[in-house]
Amino acid sequence: MALLAEEIVEEWLNRQGYFTIRGIKMGVQEIDLLAVKAQEDGKTDCRHIEVQASMRPVSYISRVPKESQKAGRAANSAKRSADELVQGVAEWVEKKFHRPVKTSLMRTLWNGDWSSELVVNVVKSDEELNLVAGHGIKILRLNEIVESLASNKFVVASAAGGDIIDLIQMGSALKEDA
């Protein structure tokens, strides 16, 4: 599901005129999507987007803090204290968006300000999303992205992920006809 969701988000960005790179590998680190687009004012819009597209989440997006893991807690434990959630989110944001190897690569690709964005589908905890947003991460909803793709009001009519979007829209049309 994650790769399909990334492809849908990439198609959405491409249709808006963004040039994208998806699935950048740096050892064990990965960046889901980078997107760059020239603006009319001569500036460049640079976006770093991570995608979490769970359909039935059983745990949080973030992990139990490293300190708690060292004490024997499972990394993906669904039971967390408020402090563990706060610390786990902080560690997750650092890992996903602020690691020096990632920010250095982004500056090499385009030396400008990059937004940090997270696309989610269904999440276990809205509180966790609020904590993520509190770190300056913009939260986007996958269902809203999919719905916007039906508008056909884009700079680019279709890109590499167009077939997937056609299938989604065909499925929606079949549901409406039933």
Rank of each mutant, 00 (worst) to 15 (best):
R22A: 03
G23V: 06
G23Q: 00
I24C: 11
G27H: 05
V28W: 01
Q29E: 13
E30Y: 03
I31Y: 01
D32Y: 06
D32S: 08
D32H: 06
D32M: 01
L34D: 01
L34F: 14
L34Y: 07
V36P: 02
A38L: 14
D41R: 02
D41G: 01
G42T: 08
K43N: 14
D45V: 10
I49L: 10
I49V: 15
Q52M: 00
M55R: 12
M55I: 15
R56N: 10
R56W: 10
P57K: 01
P57W: 03
V58G: 12
S59E: 06
Y60R: 02
I61R: 02
S62M: 07
V64D: 14
P65W: 09
K66H: 10
E67W: 10
S68E: 12
Q69H: 06
K70W: 14
K70E: 15
A71Y: 09
G72P: 10
R73Y: 08
R73G: 03
A75K: 14
N76Q: 07
A78R: 09
R80S: 10
A82P: 14
A82S: 13
D83H: 01
E84W: 07
L85T: 04
L85K: 04
L85Q: 04
L85Y: 03
Q87P: 09
Q87R: 11
G88P: 07
V89A: 02
V89M: 03
E94A: 11
F97V: 02
F97Y: 12
H98Q: 06
R99W: 04
P100C: 00
S104A: 08
S104F: 06
L105W: 02
L105H: 01
M106C: 08
M106W: 00
T108Y: 05
L109W: 07
W110T: 07
G112L: 03
D113G: 11
D113K: 13
